[in-house]
Design a protein around this nucleic acid. Sequence first.
DNA 1: TTATTTATTGAACGTTCATTATAATAAACC
DNA 2: GGTTTATTATAATGAACGTTCAATAAATAA
Lengths: 184, 184
Amino acid sequence: MRGVSKKEVILNTAENLFYQHGFHAVGVKSILNEVGVAPMTMYYHFHSKETLIVEILKRRELRYFDFLQKEIDRDNGLAAYAETLIKAHTDWMKTDGLNGCLFLRAKQEYEGVNEEIAALSKEHKKTLQQKIEQELKTFNSSKQAGTQLVMILEGITSTAQVMAMEEVEEAAFRIAKNMRADSQ
Amino acid sequence: MRGVSKKEVILNTAENLFYQHGFHAVGVKSILNEVGVAPMTMYYHFHSKETLIVEILKRRELRYFDFLQKEIDRDNGLAAYAETLIKAHTDWMKTDGLNGCLFLRAKQEYEGVNEEIAALSKEHKKTLQQKIEQELKTFNSSKQAGTQLVMILEGITSTAQVMAMEEVEEAAFRIAKNMRADSQ
DNA sequence: TTATTTATTGAACGTTCATTATAATAAACC
DNA sequence: GGTTTATTATAATGAACGTTCAATAAATAA
């Protein structure tokens, strides 16, 4: 057995396809073709397309928070924190892709269809906000700065779909630089 | 013949359904059922689902810019402009719905599939940015403030999908209040 | 009033969808 | 060596997809 199991290859390939084209747009067959496996190989590991999506989202959340973790400066006040948070997020996007947020997309496509998927996506954003707010306490910035930072990150993700990343980053850094520690 | 033609009813109903569930998720049949017409009634007015989408997006763009136009204060500097722009945008969202940006969604779902739709969506954002930048010139704010404002609007649209609108608005107004006219 | 165009109908088309059935092997594990 | 675990290929399932057929009703024009 080589380094990556077939289950992992399916997860990776499907995640990429879903991110590029959307969940409903990507058929099971196109995943199977891309991976090069028979239908039953997929259905052996995941009992449906939607279960596969759930696993993809859970994995992705861990990977994203892990990635942010590494780059963030928590020891030099709001300005440094905000700057490194934005930098970490744009670094993620540069390797992951510029097609918007997969969680928001999942929520849009599965709200009213599969509530587990929709809930996972909403919880992901809530978790992000809570993580940020918790760290803001360290240098006693107000909780409201947390909402602002989440909003800036989401603004980055959205605008990067239609603008040059360089322009997006510049604007984001400038917004962050003007934030006030007491946020009022 | 009553006030609204069947073509208009199809456009309105389809736009709502697409906005609620996404383009690929909404089948032609579900539009027809909701409107209460036979397939050929739709195909008489639009020669395909994708043509229908194109018309919906064009109409929506006019409606949105028209809506913004009415509420914006262009005569009292950057702070007043930014505040009324944000207010106009959130007012639009409150009546239109909190499911993200239909143009970005169209771009995501049709990039590589139907380039007319994808292009329309990208152009919509470019137009929005240009309109804002042109108005910023009036009170000689830098062009960079335009990118920042677009980013704030997109941040609002995204975060409103997972947060209370009240919290979203508060954060947006605070970010805008801290913007500098020379943006440096 | 008839002729013609415009608008609409219900049923059906061929295709693709996610999923399962079947049956035969491989590979990994004990 | 026997048993579980993982995979292959092919085909079939029923449902949903976007679209078209052929017929007709309604509106318009002569």
